[in-house]
Computed example of a mutant assay.
Amino acid sequence: MKEFIQYLPKVELHLHIEGTLEPELMLALAKRNNIDIPFNSIAEVRDAYNFHNLQSFLDIYFQGADVLIKEQDFFELTWAYLLRCQADNVVHTEIFFDPQAHTQRGICFDTVVNGIHRALIKGTTELGISSKLIMCFLRHLDEESAFKTLAQAQDHQDKIIAVGLDSTELGHPAAKFEQVFKQAIKQGFLTVAHAGEEGPASNIHEALRLLHITRIDHGVRCTDDEELVQQLVSERIPLTVCPLSNIKLKVFERMEQHNIVALLRKGVCVTINSDDPAYFGGYMTDNFLAVNQALPMNKTEIAQFTFNAIAASFISKSEKQRLTIVTQRYLEQNN
C-alpha cells in the first residue's frame, strides 16, 4: 500500500507556498539577504515548529516570510516545492500565496508574483507539473487592504486564476470580505476560502452564501451540521482537507479521530492536501500515508481522493479527462 500511495498520481489544491519554507532555505536566505532571525541552527528552527494553535503557528509563519526579499527568493522557494511535488508524483498543483504578508514589509507585489510564476512555468516545462496560482487575502487585515491587493493583481490576471481567504477565522467572518469578493468575481477571478477549520460549521455556510466560493478550504467542521454535509454531497462542493495540519494545530487530537475518510464514504468531494508542509511535518505522500495508517482504506478509496481533486481543480475539462484516465489506468494496473 505504501508503494501504491507513493506512485499514485496526485493533485494538490491547498498549499501555501510560504508554508513550504524549509529551515535550510530559511537560514540560507536570511544570511544572503542579511535578515536577522531568532534562530542559529536548523535544529532551533525545527524546535520552534511546536504549535499549540493556529495563532502560534501564524506567528512563526510570518516571521519566516521575512527572509523572502527578492524575486529570486520566491523563485527558489517555489522551485524547491515543485521538486517535492515531483518526488511525490504530484501532477498538478494549485498554490496559494499571501501578497499582503510581503507588500506590508515593503516588497513589491510584482516581485512576489513574478518569482513564483517563473518557477511554475519552469515546473511545467522541465518537470511536467501543471499549476495554477491563487492569491489569498489575509482575513486578520481589513477589507480596504484586500481591495488594494486586488487592484495590484489586475496586471497579473494572466498569472492568477483565483482569490482566496486565509489566516485566522476567529473574529474575522466572511461578511467582512463580501464586497471585495464580489468585485473579484466581477473581474473574472474564481473564488475559494478557508472556513470550518478552527471556526464552526456556520462559517462554511457564510462563505458559500456571502463569498460565492466554488470550493472550501479545510471545511472539516461540516460534520457538526448534517444538513450541510448533505448539501456538500448533492452540490458536489469540494473540501480541500489537510490532515497532518489538522493534527499539528489540534483540530483533531489524533489522526484516528479525523473525519476525512467518513466524509469520503458519505460521498463528499473531499481531497487530501499538505497546507504548510515545512511546518506541519509532511508533503502529499506523507499526508496520504498518515491517513491510511490511522484509517485504513482500499486502493479504490485512496485513488478517489485524486479523482475528487481532479474534478475540483481549476484546469480545463480536457485536462481533467486526461488526468482522470491516467489515474484510472494506474488504479487498474495496481489494484
Score class of each variant (00 low, 15 high):
3 E>M: 11
10 K>P: 10
15 L>T: 07
16 H>C: 06
17 I>S: 02
18 E>M: 00
18 E>W: 00
19 G>T: 04
23 P>V: 11
26 M>T: 01
27 L>W: 07
29 L>M: 08
30 A>V: 02
33 N>Q: 12
34 N>E: 12
35 I>C: 15
40 N>Y: 09
43 A>M: 15
48 A>C: 09
52 H>A: 07
53 N>L: 09
57 F>I: 01
59 D>Q: 14
63 Q>D: 01
64 G>P: 03
72 Q>N: 10
72 Q>K: 10
75 F>C: 01
76 E>Y: 04
81 Y>H: 11
81 Y>K: 08
82 L>R: 00
84 R>M: 07
91 V>G: 01
98 D>H: 11
102 H>G: 13
104 Q>Y: 15
106 G>Q: 11
111 T>V: 12
112 V>Q: 12
112 V>L: 13
115 G>A: 06
116 I>R: 03
120 L>K: 00
125 T>Y: 00
126 E>L: 01
131 S>L: 06
134 I>G: 08
139 R>W: 07
140 H>I: 04
154 Q>D: 14
163 V>K: 13
163 V>T: 11
167 S>I: 03
174 A>E: 04
178 E>P: 09
178 E>G: 05
184 A>V: 03
190 L>V: 15
196 G>T: 14
200 P>V: 02
207 A>T: 15
217 D>L: 09
222 C>W: 08
227 E>R: 07
235 E>R: 11
247 I>E: 15
265 R>P: 05
266 K>N: 05
267 G>F: 02
268 V>K: 11
271 T>G: 06
274 S>N: 05
276 D>V: 01
282 G>D: 00
284 M>S: 06
286 D>P: 15
286 D>I: 14
294 A>F: 14
296 P>D: 08
300 T>F: 13
312 A>F: 04
312 A>P: 14
314 F>N: 09
333 Q>W: 07
